[in-house]
Design a protein around this nucleic acid. Structure first.
Lengths: 215, 215
DNA sequence: GTCTATAACCTGATAGAC
DNA sequence: GTCTATCAGGTTATAGAC
């Protein structure tokens, strides 16, 4: 089982869980399905992860931790650069997620669906990950967006960052819908095109004039 | 049980199911929880709805049918009006949903969460409702948006309508997140404010210049 | 680390009395 | 239309052999 071309049981469980969570949701997926798909024993989940709850956390964190680290690294770079633009900021915010979701061979849409659903997932383990892992990132980026959008009030910035997150989450989670709505003409796997369209829309929304009377 | 101030068992089951689906998701909610909350007998679900699957369909359709009818009625009105604007179109698209989700007393966020999650819900009954109930509406509105956005290619229109749907879905499903991100300063129950902010952002995104070189 | 067997419990659905 | 009782099968978690 530990030969070079056979991944560890632990990783096979994570991969199988992620794919099944993406396809049918967390609650509809049983440990029996996961271990059967991963060609592992039922008891191995509890051996490696202690419980289904902790397995869920590991599946999410494996993707989110490096993704958010990449975002924050890029943000830090921009903050020490006088010439950085709103466009750079949107790249730093969107690209690591799109990259992670659509780059992984054969499972672009799987990981994307799984990640995009994070925000609307009712499961408690998922909810707590939003608070612990995403909250800080959203705040740091909101502050950075605010510096680029001095014409907006603080709450207007929050509204618009919220919408920008919604665009990302919906594009990842509901990629199949845009394929269907366009009768197949749009390919939601095309990383560069997805990013280009998302940024164009979000930048226009973010820079729109303030709704608050300033005259 | 059939007195004037006691709603029918059938309605009590629908209400309880909707609230529980919103809070914990469809798969995590058992018929026993639903009937216990509705003060009805376990067997009554199968008596009134035949199966859990059909109950799910009824819970969704009760909200979606009148909402989409209102959208299409307003769209038909606009189509016979030469002077209709993009702003009118966004109202026709967004307002019936916001109205339904935030108007119902005491359960604004409940119905909103439930409705916003529709797009990312993995459950099969939910998925099929998107196809049968939302697909046609999205197409009719896409055509109307296209008429107001002659500078865009057909696929660009689809992308931007998709993002506009994402803004709506995310705002409804993740209303608690914007409350949290704004440290309570934003009230996601304020119907007029939600609509105003959503429309401002979406209109700017929709009308942004085309990405395709036209020179 | 991997496995089998099993404990303790929950699930949707239904038969049949009232 | 409402109820109880029950069926058949699913669930997570764990004890203990190898």
């Amino acid at each position: 089982m530990n030969e070079a071309n056979v991944r560890e049981t632990k990783d096979r469980i994570l991969d199988a869980a992620e794919a099944l969570f993406a396809k049918q949701g967390i609650e509809a997926t049983s440990l029996r399905q996961i271990t059967s798909e991963a060609k592992a024993n039922l008891a191995s989940v509890n051996y490696h992860f202690n419980s289904k709850e902790e397995l869920i956390r590991h599946v999410y964190l494996r993707r989110i931790r490096p993704m958010n680290q990449a975002r924050l690294d890029r943000l830090t770079d921009l903050e020490s650069n006088e010439a950085s633009s709103l466009d750079n900021l949107l790249d730093a915010f969107y690209e690591p997620t799109i990259e992670m979701a659509l780059d992984l061979k054969d499972k672009g849409l799987t990981v994307g669906q799984f990640m995009g659903r994070l925000y609307t997932e009712p499961n408690e383990a998922a909810q707590s990950i939003i608070t612990t892992e995403m909250g800080g990132v959203a705040r740091r980026f909101s502050a950075a967006f605010a510096r680029h959008l001095p014409h907006l009030s603080p709450t207007e910035v929050i509204w618009r960052v919220h919408f920008s997150i919604g665009i990302l989450a919906h594009t990842l989670a509901a990629a199949a819908k845009i394929q269907h709505l366009s009768d197949g003409r749009i390919n939601p796997h095309d990383k560069q095109e997805v990013l280009r369209q998302m940024k164009r829309f979000a930048r226009a929304g973010l820079t729109a004039p303030s709704l608050e009377s300033t005259t």
